[in-house]
Protein backbone atom coordinates (compact mmCIF):
# COMPACT_ATOMS: atom_id res chain seq x y z
CA UNK A 1 0.00 0.00 0.00
CA UNK A 2 1.32 3.39 -0.94
CA UNK A 3 1.21 6.38 1.37
CA UNK A 4 2.59 8.95 -1.02
CA UNK A 5 0.88 12.28 -1.40
CA UNK A 6 0.00 12.47 -5.06
CA UNK A 7 -0.08 15.73 -6.92
CA UNK A 8 -3.55 15.10 -8.24
CA UNK A 9 -7.03 15.29 -6.76
CA UNK A 10 -6.17 17.72 -4.00
CA UNK A 11 -8.14 20.89 -3.94
CA UNK A 12 -9.06 23.36 -1.29
CA UNK A 13 -12.65 23.63 -0.14
CA UNK A 14 -13.69 27.08 -1.23
CA UNK A 15 -17.38 26.96 -0.31
CA UNK A 16 -19.09 28.57 2.63
CA UNK A 17 -18.85 26.80 5.97
CA UNK A 18 -22.13 25.98 7.67
CA UNK A 19 -23.33 27.39 10.96
CA UNK A 20 -23.52 25.98 14.45
CA UNK A 21 -27.03 24.55 14.06
CA UNK A 22 -26.13 22.59 10.94
CA UNK A 23 -22.96 21.27 12.55
CA UNK A 24 -24.95 20.14 15.57
CA UNK A 25 -27.48 18.58 13.21
CA UNK A 26 -24.72 16.47 11.68
CA UNK A 27 -23.86 15.11 15.12
CA UNK A 28 -27.52 14.20 15.67
CA UNK A 29 -27.76 12.61 12.24
CA UNK A 30 -24.66 10.47 12.67
CA UNK A 31 -25.73 9.56 16.20
CA UNK A 32 -29.17 8.39 15.08
CA UNK A 33 -27.59 6.38 12.25
CA UNK A 34 -25.15 4.75 14.63
CA UNK A 35 -27.96 3.85 17.01
CA UNK A 36 -29.80 2.04 14.24
CA UNK A 37 -26.67 0.24 13.02
CA UNK A 38 -26.49 2.03 9.68
CA UNK A 39 -23.35 1.37 7.61
CA UNK A 40 -22.48 -1.50 9.93
CA UNK A 41 -22.93 -5.27 9.87
CA UNK A 42 -26.35 -6.90 10.12
CA UNK A 43 -25.59 -7.81 13.72
CA UNK A 44 -25.60 -4.12 14.65
CA UNK A 45 -28.97 -3.62 12.96
CA UNK A 46 -30.92 -6.68 14.05
CA UNK A 47 -31.57 -5.79 17.69
CA UNK A 48 -32.75 -2.18 17.22
CA UNK A 49 -34.96 -3.10 14.29
CA UNK A 50 -36.33 -6.15 16.12
CA UNK A 51 -37.28 -3.92 19.05
CA UNK A 52 -38.95 -1.42 16.73
CA UNK A 53 -40.89 -4.26 15.12
CA UNK A 54 -41.96 -5.61 18.52
CA UNK A 55 -43.08 -2.12 19.59
CA UNK A 56 -45.15 -1.77 16.45
CA UNK A 57 -46.50 -5.34 16.60
CA UNK A 58 -49.62 -4.63 18.73
CA UNK A 59 -50.64 -1.81 16.39
CA UNK A 60 -50.11 -3.97 13.33
CA UNK A 61 -52.12 -6.85 14.86
CA UNK A 62 -55.01 -4.57 15.77
CA UNK A 63 -55.07 -2.93 12.36
CA UNK A 64 -54.75 -6.33 10.69
CA UNK A 65 -57.75 -7.63 12.58
CA UNK A 66 -59.72 -4.56 11.63
CA UNK A 67 -58.77 -5.08 8.01
CA UNK A 68 -59.86 -8.70 8.10
CA UNK A 69 -63.11 -8.26 10.00
CA UNK A 70 -66.08 -6.60 8.48
CA UNK A 71 -67.20 -3.30 9.92
CA UNK A 72 -70.38 -4.95 11.27
CA UNK A 73 -68.41 -7.40 13.38
CA UNK A 74 -66.00 -4.64 14.44
CA UNK A 75 -68.82 -2.74 16.06
CA UNK A 76 -69.72 -5.71 18.25
CA UNK A 77 -66.31 -6.01 19.89
CA UNK A 78 -64.89 -3.52 22.36
CA UNK A 79 -61.85 -1.47 21.49
CA UNK A 80 -59.07 -4.02 21.47
CA UNK A 81 -56.16 -1.78 22.34
CA UNK A 82 -56.92 1.63 23.85
CA UNK A 83 -54.24 4.25 23.20
CA UNK A 84 -53.49 4.74 26.86
CA UNK A 85 -52.83 1.03 27.33
CA UNK A 86 -50.27 0.90 24.55
CA UNK A 87 -47.39 2.24 26.63
CA UNK A 88 -48.00 -0.38 29.28
CA UNK A 89 -47.81 -3.07 26.59
CA UNK A 90 -44.53 -1.87 25.15
CA UNK A 91 -42.92 -0.35 28.25
CA UNK A 92 -40.24 -3.07 28.46
CA UNK A 93 -39.41 -2.61 24.78
CA UNK A 94 -39.03 1.15 25.22
CA UNK A 95 -36.77 0.59 28.20
CA UNK A 96 -34.61 -1.93 26.34
CA UNK A 97 -34.35 0.26 23.25
CA UNK A 98 -33.09 3.18 25.32
CA UNK A 99 -30.67 0.84 27.08
CA UNK A 100 -29.30 -0.11 23.69
CA UNK A 101 -29.11 3.34 22.11
CA UNK A 102 -27.73 5.48 24.94
CA UNK A 103 -24.62 3.38 25.63
CA UNK A 104 -24.11 2.91 21.88
CA UNK A 105 -23.75 6.66 21.42
CA UNK A 106 -21.77 7.63 24.51
CA UNK A 107 -19.55 4.74 25.56
CA UNK A 108 -17.48 4.25 22.37
CA UNK A 109 -16.70 7.99 22.27
CA UNK A 110 -15.18 7.79 25.73
CA UNK A 111 -13.62 4.35 25.23
CA UNK A 112 -11.93 5.36 21.98
CA UNK A 113 -11.02 8.92 23.13
CA UNK A 114 -12.94 10.43 20.22
CA UNK A 115 -14.01 13.35 22.39
CA UNK A 116 -10.63 15.05 22.03
CA UNK A 117 -11.13 15.13 18.28
CA UNK A 118 -14.72 16.35 18.52
CA UNK A 119 -13.68 19.17 20.82
CA UNK A 120 -10.81 20.13 18.53
CA UNK A 121 -13.49 21.15 16.04
CA UNK A 122 -15.67 24.12 16.90
CA UNK A 123 -17.99 21.79 18.84
CA UNK A 124 -18.47 22.85 22.46
CA UNK A 125 -18.98 20.38 25.28
CA UNK A 126 -22.60 21.34 25.91
CA UNK A 127 -23.28 21.03 22.18
CA UNK A 128 -21.89 17.51 22.23
CA UNK A 129 -24.26 16.58 25.07
CA UNK A 130 -27.23 18.19 23.30
CA UNK A 131 -26.30 16.39 20.09
CA UNK A 132 -26.11 13.04 21.83
CA UNK A 133 -29.43 13.59 23.61
CA UNK A 134 -31.13 14.48 20.32
CA UNK A 135 -29.34 11.60 18.60
CA UNK A 136 -30.85 9.24 21.17
CA UNK A 137 -34.32 10.78 21.27
CA UNK A 138 -34.72 10.66 17.47
CA UNK A 139 -34.52 6.85 17.13
CA UNK A 140 -36.39 6.45 20.41
CA UNK A 141 -39.40 8.06 18.74
CA UNK A 142 -39.55 4.98 16.51
CA UNK A 143 -40.71 2.99 19.52
CA UNK A 144 -42.48 5.62 21.62
CA UNK A 145 -44.30 7.52 18.87
CA UNK A 146 -44.29 5.71 15.55
CA UNK A 147 -46.48 2.68 16.58
CA UNK A 148 -49.10 4.89 18.22
CA UNK A 149 -49.25 7.18 15.21
CA UNK A 150 -49.65 4.18 12.93
CA UNK A 151 -52.43 2.86 15.17
CA UNK A 152 -54.18 6.22 15.25
CA UNK A 153 -54.19 6.74 11.51
CA UNK A 154 -55.08 3.09 10.96
CA UNK A 155 -58.05 3.49 13.26
CA UNK A 156 -58.97 6.63 11.34
CA UNK A 157 -58.90 4.79 8.03
CA UNK A 158 -61.00 1.88 9.35
CA UNK A 159 -63.51 4.12 11.12
CA UNK A 160 -67.06 4.28 9.80
CA UNK A 161 -66.63 8.01 9.33
CA UNK A 162 -62.90 8.76 9.13
CA UNK A 163 -63.32 12.52 9.07
CA UNK A 164 -65.56 12.45 12.15
CA UNK A 165 -63.14 10.11 13.90
CA UNK A 166 -60.26 12.44 13.19
CA UNK A 167 -62.21 15.45 14.41
CA UNK A 168 -63.40 13.68 17.57
CA UNK A 169 -60.03 12.22 18.43
CA UNK A 170 -57.77 15.13 17.51
CA UNK A 171 -57.02 15.73 21.20
CA UNK A 172 -55.99 12.10 21.48
CA UNK A 173 -53.55 12.64 18.63
CA UNK A 174 -52.03 15.55 20.54
CA UNK A 175 -51.70 13.35 23.62
CA UNK A 176 -50.04 10.62 21.54
CA UNK A 177 -47.48 13.07 20.16
CA UNK A 178 -46.71 14.58 23.55
CA UNK A 179 -46.57 11.22 25.31
CA UNK A 180 -44.20 9.84 22.69
CA UNK A 181 -41.82 12.77 23.08
CA UNK A 182 -41.96 12.69 26.89
CA UNK A 183 -41.22 8.98 27.07
CA UNK A 184 -38.43 9.23 24.50
CA UNK A 185 -36.85 12.10 26.40
CA UNK A 186 -37.22 10.43 29.80
CA UNK A 187 -35.71 7.09 28.84
CA UNK A 188 -33.03 8.70 26.67
CA UNK A 189 -31.81 10.96 29.46
CA UNK A 190 -31.82 8.16 32.01
CA UNK A 191 -29.95 5.83 29.67
CA UNK A 192 -27.40 8.48 28.69
CA UNK A 193 -26.82 9.48 32.31
CA UNK A 194 -25.97 5.90 33.26
CA UNK A 195 -23.94 5.43 30.07
CA UNK A 196 -21.86 8.52 30.85
CA UNK A 197 -20.51 6.72 33.91
CA UNK A 198 -18.87 3.91 31.97
CA UNK A 199 -16.73 3.39 28.88
CA UNK A 200 -18.12 -0.12 28.41
CA UNK A 201 -21.42 -0.53 26.61
CA UNK A 202 -22.22 -3.78 28.42
CA UNK A 203 -21.66 -2.22 31.84
CA UNK A 204 -23.71 0.83 30.91
CA UNK A 205 -26.60 -1.22 29.57
CA UNK A 206 -26.46 -3.57 32.55
CA UNK A 207 -26.33 -0.68 34.97
CA UNK A 208 -29.27 1.06 33.34
CA UNK A 209 -31.46 -2.04 33.25
CA UNK A 210 -30.33 -2.99 36.75
CA UNK A 211 -31.32 0.46 38.03
CA UNK A 212 -34.79 0.18 36.55
CA UNK A 213 -35.32 -3.41 37.74
CA UNK A 214 -34.00 -2.59 41.20
CA UNK A 215 -36.14 0.51 41.67
CA UNK A 216 -39.13 -1.38 40.32
CA UNK A 217 -38.61 -4.23 42.76
CA UNK A 218 -37.96 -2.01 45.76
CA UNK A 219 -40.80 0.41 44.98
CA UNK A 220 -43.23 -2.39 44.24
CA UNK A 221 -42.32 -4.35 47.36
CA UNK A 222 -42.61 -1.35 49.65
CA UNK A 223 -45.84 -0.05 48.13
CA UNK A 224 -47.72 -3.22 47.41
CA UNK A 225 -45.94 -6.11 49.15
CA UNK A 226 -45.13 -4.62 52.53
CA UNK A 227 -47.80 -1.93 52.13
CA UNK A 228 -45.55 0.71 53.70
CA UNK A 229 -47.25 3.40 51.67
CA UNK A 230 -48.55 4.04 48.18
CA UNK A 231 -46.03 6.80 47.62
CA UNK A 232 -43.20 4.24 47.41
CA UNK A 233 -44.55 3.17 44.03
CA UNK A 234 -43.03 6.42 42.73
CA UNK A 235 -39.64 4.71 43.00
CA UNK A 236 -40.52 2.52 40.03
CA UNK A 237 -38.58 4.23 37.25
CA UNK A 238 -40.24 2.20 34.50
CA UNK A 239 -43.83 2.58 35.68
CA UNK A 240 -43.72 6.24 36.72
CA UNK A 241 -43.32 7.95 33.31
CA UNK A 242 -45.81 5.56 31.69
CA UNK A 243 -48.30 6.32 34.44
CA UNK A 244 -47.67 10.03 33.95
CA UNK A 245 -48.34 10.05 30.22
CA UNK A 246 -51.47 7.93 30.69
CA UNK A 247 -52.96 10.85 32.56
CA UNK A 248 -52.97 12.79 29.30
CA UNK A 249 -55.54 10.33 27.98
CA UNK A 250 -57.86 11.10 30.92
CA UNK A 251 -56.98 7.75 32.47
CA UNK A 252 -55.94 7.13 36.05
CA UNK A 253 -52.41 5.84 36.45
CA UNK A 254 -52.74 2.07 36.56
CA UNK A 255 -50.10 1.42 39.19
CA UNK A 256 -51.90 3.06 42.04
CA UNK A 257 -54.75 5.52 41.66
CA UNK A 258 -54.24 6.54 45.28
CA UNK A 259 -51.19 8.58 44.24
CA UNK A 260 -52.13 11.90 42.64
CA UNK A 261 -51.10 12.13 38.95
CA UNK A 262 -49.09 15.27 39.60
CA UNK A 263 -46.58 13.21 41.59
CA UNK A 264 -45.92 10.98 38.59
CA UNK A 265 -45.12 14.09 36.58
CA UNK A 266 -42.94 15.51 39.33
CA UNK A 267 -40.90 12.31 39.58
CA UNK A 268 -40.63 12.10 35.78
CA UNK A 269 -39.36 15.68 35.65
CA UNK A 270 -37.00 15.07 38.57
CA UNK A 271 -35.45 12.02 36.87
CA UNK A 272 -34.96 14.02 33.68
CA UNK A 273 -33.33 16.92 35.54
CA UNK A 274 -31.21 14.56 37.61
CA UNK A 275 -30.02 12.81 34.45
CA UNK A 276 -29.15 16.15 32.88
CA UNK A 277 -27.19 17.04 36.00
CA UNK A 278 -25.20 13.80 35.74
CA UNK A 279 -24.46 14.50 32.07
CA UNK A 280 -23.38 18.06 32.86
CA UNK A 281 -21.11 16.79 35.62
CA UNK A 282 -19.53 14.14 33.42
CA UNK A 283 -18.87 16.47 30.48
CA UNK A 284 -18.07 19.71 32.26
CA UNK A 285 -14.37 18.98 32.63
CA UNK A 286 -11.09 19.99 31.06
CA UNK A 287 -10.38 16.64 29.44
CA UNK A 288 -9.47 16.21 25.85
Amino acid sequence: MSARVEDVRYSRYEGELRGRTERLGSLVWFGARTALGARRSWRAKIIPFALIAIAAFPAIVVLGLKALLSSRIQETIPEILPYDDYYGEIGIVVMLFAGLVGPELLCPDRRDNVLSLYFSTALERHEYVIGRIAGTVAPMLLVTLFPQVVLFFGNTVFAEEPVDYLRDEIRTLGAILLAGVVLALYFSLLSLAVASLSERRAFAMGGYIGLIVLTGAVGGSLAFGMEVGNGWSLLQLLIVPISAVRTMFDTDPFSDPAVAPVYYWLVTAAVCLGSLAVLWWRYRGDEG
Partner: peptide, 12 residues
Protein backbone atom coordinates in the same frame (compact mmCIF):
# COMPACT_ATOMS: atom_id res chain seq x y z
CA UNK B 1 -18.47 13.33 10.09
CA UNK B 2 -15.46 15.35 11.22
CA UNK B 3 -15.72 17.41 8.04
CA UNK B 4 -19.36 18.19 8.77
CA UNK B 5 -18.57 19.05 12.38
CA UNK B 6 -16.06 21.53 11.01
CA UNK B 7 -18.75 23.14 8.90
CA UNK B 8 -18.65 21.39 5.52
CA UNK B 9 -22.00 20.56 3.92
CA UNK B 10 -22.65 16.83 3.50
CA UNK B 11 -21.82 16.67 -0.18
CA UNK B 12 -18.68 18.75 0.27
Amino acid sequence: QLGMLRGLPHRG
